[in-house]
Design a protein around this nucleic acid. Structure first.
Lengths: 192, 192, 192, 192
DNA sequence: CATGAATGAGGCTTCATTCAT
DNA sequence: AATGAATGAAGCCTCATTCAT
């Protein structure tokens, strides 16, 4: 084990193990073994299994937010362009971190309230981001959907589901996928 | 516990526990306590925790399939009507069995291969059902979507997500919800 | 299950199971399954697992004693003839009930004191039988061994060991075996 | 419990418990309690109950083989002397490790095939050792027995049986016992 | 920093046995 | 004479965690 790399190796090992097997099906021994460190070393870096889960979930969520914010910042000042940016960022994230990305959808419930609150607050940000874009579009007359909330949920669910079926070796390229889902999202919100 | 009612009570207890906490976070003790029987009684009726999970998942899946088939049978002979029927059945199922229905989406991975195969074979049926309806619509010119597979996944993901946010006490009635999602689904497949 | 045959079937099943797997490795379920009866039926006939073990051990021991006594009764009034008779009866018993016969040597220790005493008293009879024959022979000058007790133990151990290696399908016939062991026994006690 | 002494204590405790009660009658709790450690500590050192049994049986068998080989090495180059050496080593082993020595005769059947094979291969060595000595004697004309295999089994059975009845507090000294059994063995093979 | 050894609690499962029917 | 359903105790083993070194 290279000095100072213990922490990163443990984080990565935990992310993989939690993603593949789930929180409760993963033992701390598992993680230590995957990381190539002793269990005591793991406890030197992290207070416990919960802290590992929180660290992993938070990192993954931050990664997503950063990607979304960058996409929005780079997009034209226009509701449809904003929506396109969010969808593209989300699709790319689901593809890029296919395995881990399911973590944030599934393992949140295993967080103790203490950590759950911290993460939920952050996830609220995401909801506001999407809702802001769609509501702006509706207000500006760019989106014609009569149910913005349901449309938002539909778009997000559709993007999230990519992690369930997409395989990088398949026939569809990422850029094709982005194009399709951008189009589907515009359809859902009834972009004019 | 009234003699002879153990089996049903255990099944119900397992369904609730697995749905609320997840397979690995649920102990056999938990289930027995919820069912009001001893742990040994549980093992009299089921061979083990795996068999309980399988029984619960299968029952829930069958319930869904029956609802879908009945809906299709009662629908008019017309692609759009078929799609409406499937969406309505799915939305109603997600609302009616909100808690358990997440089970089939999340806990499948905890099935041992032996049982996994059995259930996957059955779930394939569902995919074919949806694909059949949408492909028929496209072929007949009733649906204009250029990507029937992605449209199908989007519609299903959207319906499945209902279980994540819907609360029966909320403002939206089930009939409203059905109407909205039928409309959203038609939008997604670009019904003419 | 033929009426009235339950008891015998259970006894036979227990004998086989105990002999093959040992007392503690055999579950009551095992025995009931082998006998083709329900567990409750087993408990109707026998008070418990201990009682089954005792019944099996006693029956097998009685079988042996009867064989020995008959052999002695039919033998000539002569120490060497008596020894021959006991050896022949023992060899035949070990061959005839090869599997079960190990029971009496190995599983006795699993008897609760209550039953242990009863069986030990009966087994003492066997020791006296052998000791009587050998001591008579020594007293009469027919056997020249200086250590009658060790000679007796050697002869018995040698005969008992047959159950460990003998296979009925092997090259040696039972009559050959009897002849050899009679000869070996005479050698051990130094018959003149 | 002094830190670091767990392994030896557990091995000793297992040996005693298995010898006194048998494998299936001994619980892991039993062993841990005897060793003065927690059950979890036991599983830190040994993978399971089976591994403990195997460790105990192998150690005991190795002890015996070493004793036999040393005895043969120190004996004169002469069939009778070789036989004397093996008998003496065996008698001393049965007396020295009276309780454990029965283990190897009785509990072998509780080894899973995997371990059984390993031990059986080693036990084969013992058979060859005895057979070699006796066959050499017969070939050289030193032993007159017409049935070398039966003679071998008789000698071994006789020595093994010592563990069943010998008590160190009894009247017979070990050296007396050795002398008697050496003499009995020579009688059995009909040493000239 | 890191580890080998240890622990108490709890995991799933099977046991011998009982009892209402 | 027999059974299906149930139980409390105990089985083996793994867990997350700690701590002296």
């Amino acid at each position: 084990m290279i000095r100072g790399e213990g922490l990163a190796a443990i984080h990565a090992a935990a992310r993989e193990a939690f993603a593949q097997q789930g929180y409760h099906a993963t033992s701390v021994r598992d993680i230590a073994r995957r990381a190539g460190v002793s269990m005591a070393a793991l406890y030197y870096h992290y207070a416990g299994k919960q802290e590992l889960l929180f660290a992993v979930l938070r990192e993954s969520a931050e990664d997503y937010f950063v990607a979304c914010e960058r996409a929005l910042a780079e997009a034209a000042e226009d509701p449809a362009a904003h929506l396109d940016a969010l969808v593209a960022a989300t699709v790319r994230y689901r593809v890029r971190r296919r395995v881990e990305s399911r973590l944030n959808l599934v393992e949140v419930r295993n967080l103790e309230p203490r950590y759950r609150k911290l993460l939920d607050a952050r996830l609220e940000t995401a909801t506001r981001m999407w809702a802001g874009v769609i509501d702006d579009g509706v207000r500006a007359g760019a989106f014609g959907t009569p149910w913005p909330d349901d449309a938002r949920r539909a778009v997000i669910a559709m993007c999230n589901a990519i992690a369930d079926w997409y395989h990088p070796e398949g026939a569809v390229t990422v850029e094709d996928l982005v194009a399709r889902y951008v189009d589907l999202a515009r359809t859902i919100v009834r972009a004019t």
